[in-house]
């Protein structure tokens, strides 16, 4: 049995008051409640403030390149299907630099839970616009304000056929934890977009700003895709939280027949046993 605090390790380098702290706590609690031993959990991340998570949670970690958190996670899943694989990264990392991997892994549907710390800004590089920044937001680079509309990750994921699409808020920790647990247990790609105040660089979407707007709509049927699309498009005065859509479809791993049986990593190998593979060229 591991308690939540057993998953907490390392000294954080986040700003006091940052929403990342609650996300970390929620994750530690979720892992503890799911009774997942640290050596069977793998957290993959890219680069950014959110992406530092593997250093602060006791589990296996692959802290890779900016934007490239998903591909190693997929590779690791194929190599060892016994690992619970979680991807933790920022909005810039996941939707900007890593946009192509986001799109194609929703399609691929690997058994991975993807937790995006969406602070609507590039935190680590000090406050430039991210793909989810609201229009009009002024930054040191977007000096006249963001001109392009924000990307809607939940709607995109739904349109691409994601089986699990949720939005949380770091300020609603209990809900976040429960959603994380469901996402981790969900067979397939599970997207949890987590609204996360960045106290240092996002002066618009503050804790109070979110707090005032978030609400939990009643979701009658989480398998109703059209209803999910409608909810996912709500943004502004009211911002819905919850699991908007949940309906498993065959996972990437299940489509790979060779993954039946032992994990690839545990299979023995001896070159001489396959020497006959060359006979087709005789």
């Amino acid at each position: 049995m591991f308690k939540a605090k057993d998953y907490m390790s390392g000294e954080t380098a986040w700003c006091p008051g940052c929403g990342n702290f609650q996300i970390r706590e929620a994750l530690a609690e979720a892992l503890s409640e799911l009774e997942l031993p640290p050596h069977l959990v793998l957290i993959c991340s890219g680069i950014g403030q959110a992406a530092k998570m593997p250093h602060y949670i006791r589990a296996n970690g692959f802290n890779g390149l900016h934007g490239r958190a998903l591909p190693p996670a997929v590779g690791a899943r194929i190599a060892n299907k016994k690992l619970k694989v979680i991807v933790e990264s920022g909005d810039g990392d996941s939707y900007g630099e890593g946009g192509n991997h986001f799109i194609h892994n929703v399609r691929r549907n690997p058994d991975i839970a993807h937790f995006i710390h969406n602070n609507q800004v590039y935190g680590l590089t000090k406050g430039q616009a991210s793909p989810t920044s609201d229009q009009g937001m002024k930054t040191g680079v977007q000096v006249s304000g963001v001109t392009v509309p924000a990307l809607n990750p939940l709607a995109i994921a739904l349109v691409l056929g994601a089986g699990f699409v949720a939005r949380c808020f770091s300020g609603e920790k209990e809900h976040l934890k429960e959603t994380m647990k469901e996402a981790i247990n969900f067979p397939g790609y599970a997207l949890v977009d987590i609204l996360q105040p960045c106290v240092s660089f996002n002066k618009i979407n503050t804790h109070g700003w979110y707090k005032k707007r978030v609400y939990f709509p009643e979701i009658k049927d989480s398998g109703d895709w059209s209803a999910a699309i409608d909810i996912s498009r709500q943004w502004g005065d009211k911002i819905p939280l919850g699991i908007f859509y949940k309906k498993p479809r065959p996972t990437f791993e299940s489509s790979l027949a060779i993954l039946d049986g032992k994990p690839l990593v545990s299979r023995p190998f001896n070159p001489v046993e396959i020497a006959a593979v060359q006979d087709e060229y005789l």
């Binding site: 793998l42 993959c44 692959f62 890779g64 390149l65 490239r68 998903l70 591909p71 190693p72 996670a73 997929v74 590779g75 690791a76 899943r77 194929i78 190599a79 060892n80 690992l83 192509n100 991997h101 799109i103 194609h104 790979l256 027949a257 060779i258 993954l259 690839l264 990593v265 299979r267 396959i274 593979v277």
Partner: peptide, 30 residues
């Protein structure tokens, strides 16, 4: 050869994904 010789083959979405996937698989031990 994938099916008979236990090698997983994945066409990545781009070469950036290709190398990073391979690194993930290698990290995990294959």
């Amino acid at each position: 050869k994938s099916a008979n010789y236990q090698v997983a083959v994945e066409q990545a979405e781009d070469e950036i994904a290709a190398i990073n996937m391979a690194l993930g698989a290698s990290f995990a031990g294959v």
